[in-house]
Nucleic acid binder design. Sequence first.
RNA 1: GGCGGUGUAGCUCAGGCGGUUAGAGCAUGCGGCUCAUAUCCGCAGUGUCGGGGGUUCGAAUCCCUCCACCGCCA
Length: 644
Amino acid sequence: MAKKSKNTFYITTPIYYVNDVPHIGHAYTTIIADAISRYKKLLGKDVFFLTGTDEHGQKVEKAAQEKGLKPIELADQVVVRFQELWKALNIDYDFFIRTTQPIHEENIQKIFKKLKDKGDIYKGIYEGWYCDSTEHFLDEDVPLEEGGFKICPECGTKAFIVSEECYFFKLSAYQKPLLDFYAQKPTFVRPRSRMNEVVSFVKQGLKDISITRTTVEWGVPVPDDPKHTIYVWFDALHNYVTGIGYDWDRPHFEKFWPADVHLIGKDILRFHAIFWPAFLMASGFPLPQTVFGHGWWLKDEAKMSKSKGNVLDPHLILETFGPDPLRYFLLREIPIGLDGNFSHEGFIHRVNSDLANDLGNLVQRTLTMVHSYFGGKIEEMDKEEKADKALREEFENSKEKIIRFYEDYALNRALEEIWFFISTVNKYLADNEPWKLARDESQKKRLGRILYQAAAALRVISYLLFPVIPVSSEKIWDFLGEEKSIEDESLSELKFKNLKLGQAMKEPKPLFPRVALKDFLKEEETRQAPPKKEEKMDMITFDEFKRMDLRVGEILTAEKVEGTDKLVKMEVDIGTEKRAMVAGVADVYSPEELAGKKVIVIVNLKPAVIRGIESRGMLLAAEIEGKAIIPFFDKDVPAGAKVR
RNA sequence: GGCGGUGUAGCUCAGGCGGUUAGAGCAUGCGGCUCAUAUCCGCAGUGUCGGGGGUUCGAAUCCCUCCACCGCCA
């Protein structure tokens, strides 16, 4: 294979599964990829950025059936949703691959055949408990339920025994090569902590994996044996090679392969860090440089999931703010490897404070002064003085750091550094007080220098921000009177003095409007009259259940909490101690009625202060139209007895 | 259960191969400016650096132990 030229850069996102519409998590991965890709382009690299959709498999088959559609019809619909979102977010990808495209399907078959001929894929029998919903065989140590079946620990639905003839990939043969590879290239998996997990997983031993199904029709058929369908993961992972031309545009493929970064969510690390390099080794392809597993955005500290109904839809934010504030927030708030908590409060706060106050206001004040003191054109200025030079050197310093952070994919650190510099420029203006110099005509040239420095700073700031907030950055350049686009200037050439003297600057308009949190929340409310779905809870394991300490509690005393309708304060004997608890049951039970009763109490619930009273435990009750109905025991039980 | 990680200001986190008064941003309080999107600048705090023990002249930093939380274990 031809050697890859050093000046190319190939980055991918996962291909997204089309059984669901896009949400903030998809947006996050894709925004990271876009920012890195734009950064590399500024360096003058020949960048290829691939994204797309994974359209085969049982879940899509099922989701389509529920809607009365053919799988491909569902895929066609959902693909549009993704593409529209990428457009709204200003994602500048080079190719959008769909696994249903012939160039993909044909080449998957070709690769499959190649590995089969080589002996890395062989036919065998697989038997095991299979979950339709998550499309995988359960671990062998999942316990048998009483009815003699197994429950999928991931989704909670019933699994079935499936015994099928299928094709296996000889993963076991790659244990040693993989370990050697990891040892030789410790940066293959990032963040580093995840590399440890991968290595220890592989060290435990690898079994061959089944890579076909006979139970699924919606997929790529095995060549010469079409009752077998290639399993989605084998199908999907290879998009990274088919998407750049394997085997339909060889020169293009050879130009960009191997990938520099596969950006993924941490949940699919195993597939990318173990299976994928093994497949590639089998095919004889060079291995990618890095698999970067990013964290998840949580909503109010909880993982977003369809079943919780707390999936965050980015559309309202996009309509209110445009793409840049969301891009900025997601990349600034957390390091790529960690989880983050998404709240509208946090979002509005950061956008107001960083974008509107620090950056937006700096643009506004600088250009307003250029206009009111110079009519938009600084024609003349003094030589650079000490303070001016300090500002310029500060920039040169920061620029180096910022580049280092970008190179390391530490986008949050790069942004942090840029904001240090923004703050320095604000300080520079405060120290040099151009508004005072403006009152003295003899200081005109000095004033010119100061505003020139500030404008030059804005020019380089917006340049460095371009990967993250491309629209706003271009706007700032336009305000400054730049005629070329940011992308026409190479990062290595970026300097203060590139701002031409005498350039006609425009009158600025606020770049990032401040939005009050309460207005935004109100808007959100009116926007989504949420159809109140029945509360569906996730399955929990017995271990999780065991964490709740439920016991019989004897209510010793009970009295109404002054000034409330529903609250009762009780002293409850839980066997080992007596505790104060507060419960909202007074509308159904009188305190007299409660005293002496035995109830079920969760005793290790975090204490809560209710009406100034610390409630150390909660009694269990059925909630019927807002009223609490307490279960009592029909035989005598001692206080403190464990309930389970 | 096994392996790995985390616990530092009200909040989010940085530092951490031992060494001056432990840092940043946000939030809070006070002061300044008025060019600017009620923005910007300055000052001020507050912390037994998870608990306990040890090594050392000296520990947030190294060791032991306990507690809590998190990740991975097809």
